[in-house]
Design a protein around this nucleic acid. Structure first.
Lengths: 221, 221
DNA sequence: ACCTGAACACCGTTCAAGT
DNA sequence: ACCTGAACACCGTTCAAGT
């Protein structure tokens, strides 16, 4: 007789399913997260998965919440607010760099718990910084969106060479070369920027942006 | 005999395919853009479409480039730089609000022509504003990402009630009610923000963020 | 060169049936 | 309650064949 597929010994749980999903996403990107891949990795069936998880969207959201919760719980709230803000921002940047799919998910379904956690943390720190009244809410919205926007763009670039076919510097050099060929009359800024592209540090530029932001917020006080 | 499907009279072109794709995306969101929907709407076959377009990704990128080009060509470059920046930012915000799929596409494939156009415009205006040297590139990167980040988030919210099942205010009220129920001890900021959520104007908050940014950039001069 | 449409190799999700 | 896996209704893409 043909051997039957081995059924898993221990019980399934939402937790192990989310863990498996995270592994798949980290290894192969969003395209690698399929229900078939999940069932075969966990030696189970579709019904079993759907018993613990509402659908694929729910699964992706749960995996995202886990990653963000990991970043937010590590934040020391009683540090100097300005420094704490930089730490949180950088923590989010690095987490999204390590898990590019998190960035896409946060902007796809912004009403899920993960973004709430982020708003609370950044809003609270801006409050501690002394930003007053209505400006506080504008500033929080702006800063959260800046952080997620840059981190997401960076992640998209990272995703472009996830398979290892081309490495990061080669990818950026190729774009820089393309930009350098543009007509300097029509594209003066991008033409100049091309020279800086291969050597620039994404993390540092990200922090520069945060500082610009904080400088702008300081004028509101 | 069964009647054969009518073949289209005029010749197909990349342009009409992109136009049809834009209509489908605007009407039914990203899920509505399928090769089947395109072929049936244009009374043609798969091969015909693939003859003018590389693949679905290429089609989505081309549609995005069209929308962004429409925004950027309308910009008056010799206006006062500060005012021109606000105009461009608002133009992008409104375009992404009207075509939510554009926001997602720009962050999915940031190396395509559309983003180049945006960088050139915003970078050029910041240059005209007198932002010096290295700071210019940091500032341009930060501002572009802020604009696309907020516009994208706003579009994601808009997408959530695209079908018309729930209107905008009802959707925001529902989220606000959810936030208001959170423990004020654990979520003081979000709890307070809940009260402002239903009445707040996304466009205005977006512009407030741009102003914070420009104020921060002014400190670099 | 331009177009047709059957066929291929996938998807997410459901559900009757099992334990 | 928890799990199985065949089946359903879709996808994007290819390609031999037509004009």
């Amino acid at each position: 007789m043909a051997k039957r597929t081995q059924r898993r010994a221990d019980r399934l749980s939402r937790e192990v399913i989310v863990k498996a999903a995270t592994d798949l996403l980290d290894t192969g990107g969003e395209a690698a997260l399929t229900l078939r891949a999940i069932t075969s990795r966990l030696s189970t069936g579709y019904g079993a998965v759907y018993h613990h998880v509402e659908n694929k969207s729910d699964l992706l959201a749960a995996a995202t919440d886990d990653i963000i919760a990991g970043v937010m719980t590590g934040v020391v709230v009683d540090a100097e607010p300005r420094e704490a803000l930089r730490t949180v921002a950088l923590g989010l940047f690095d987490a999204i760099d390590a898990h590019p799919w998190v960035g896409a998910q946060l902007s796809r379904e912004p009403w899920r718990p993960a973004l709430l956690e982020i708003y609370e943390c950044i809003g609270g720190l801006l409050d501690a910084l002394g930003v007053p009244g209505q400006a506080l809410f504008d500033a929080a919205g702006a800063l959260v969106n800046y952080v997620l926007g840059v981190a997401g763009q960076n992640a998209a670039n990272a995703r472009a060479h996830v398979a290892g076919e081309v490495d990061r510097t080669a990818f950026l050099s190729a774009i820089a070369a393309q930009w350098a060929e543009l007509d300097p009359g029509k594209y003066p800024f991008v033409h100049k920027a091309a020279a800086r592209l291969p050597e620039h540090d994404d993390r540092e530029q990200f922090l520069s942006g945060v500082d610009i932001f904080l400088a702008g917020i300081a004028t509101l006080r």
